[in-house]
């Protein structure tokens, strides 16, 4: 049973982020908030890319971070998939090799990894561009490839950091629809960071509102709409 339970506190000179979350297996939690709320920082803390000042990250039976117990598992051993606003595909590899990278890094033989990657390209409807280099493909294709690359090793925790924010509106809707299908099939936990309530409503089971590093409200879109706890929530979920 994969379940993400975490309380991450990150302190920087200019701001502080304090986020508690609990995501059940197969569930998607959206962290929604304005720019500068600390969403990406919180996500990086879950990934192990940002030192915690306090708190812990537990995934299933494994403790990935625990400040008191001085546990801090390396990023590469956390079984995470991490997708960013930019696709950050490796420019020297083809799209197919990019998607196979995580499987190869975890020791899968080349041929098997490429075959599995091929399947992921098909699932994200970009099998045509497997042989292309990242500089030759569109933004929407690149982001699909980045999703395929993150999902291919079947991570227990999928971290999506504004995955649709860099796309044009039309492409964004298409990728969002495909992402929704992939997320419903994903058996691990997912944390989605976004500033767009449409992403949260379409993709997430539960929403946490983060403002200036603090949680102001949690709940389903309906609950948020019914009783918004701040003017930001009211603006995002007009009644």
């Amino acid at each position: 049973m994969t379940r993400l339970q975490a309380h991450v506190v990150v302190a920087r000179p200019s701001f502080r982020v304090d986020l508690e979350l609990d995501v059940a297996e197969g569930q998607v939690l959206a962290v929604l908030g304005p720019n500068g709320a600390g969403k990406s920082t919180a996500l990086a803390a879950l990934a192990g890319g940002e030192p915690l000042e306090q708190g812990f990250v537990r995934l299933g039976s494994a403790t990935l971070s625990d400040v008191q117990r001085r546990i801090d598992v390396d990023i590469s051993r956390r079984s995470i998939g991490w997708v960013f606003q930019d696709s950050l595909l490796f420019p020297h590899l083809t799209v197919l090799e990019n998607v196979a990278f995580g499987l190869r890094a975890r020791g899968m033989p080349r041929r098997a990894a490429l075959a599995a990657a091929e399947e992921w390209l098909r699932l994200l409807r970009i099998e045509r561009i497997g042989g292309s280099r990242p500089r030759e493909i569109s933004g929407g294709e690149a982001q699909r490839a980045a999703l395929a690359r993150a999902l291919a090793p079947s991570p227990q925790l999928l971290l999506l950091d504004e995955p649709l924010a860099a796309l044009d509106a039309e492409v964004r809707d298409e990728v969002r629809a495909d992402l929704a299908v992939r997320l419903s099939a994903h058996r691990g936990c997912t944390v989605l960071v976004t500033h767009d309530p449409a992403d949260a409503v379409a993709l997430a089971d539960d929403i946490v509102i983060l403002e200036r590093g603090r949680v102001v409200q949690r709940g389903t879109p309906e609950a948020l709409r019914a009783s918004p706890a701040s003017s930001y929530v009211a603006a995002m979920f007009p009644g």
Binding site: A47, I75, G81, L88, H92, G102, A105
Partner: peptide, 25 residues
């Protein structure tokens, strides 16, 4: 360093990331 982080998140050890990402780049 961003590609290093991406490689690590994909499960690559530091040595693997150095050989397969840093050196070719």
């Amino acid at each position: 360093r961003r590609f290093d982080v991406v490689a690590a998140a994909l499960g690559a050890s530091r040595w693997y990331a150095f050989r397969r990402v840093t050196l070719p780049l």
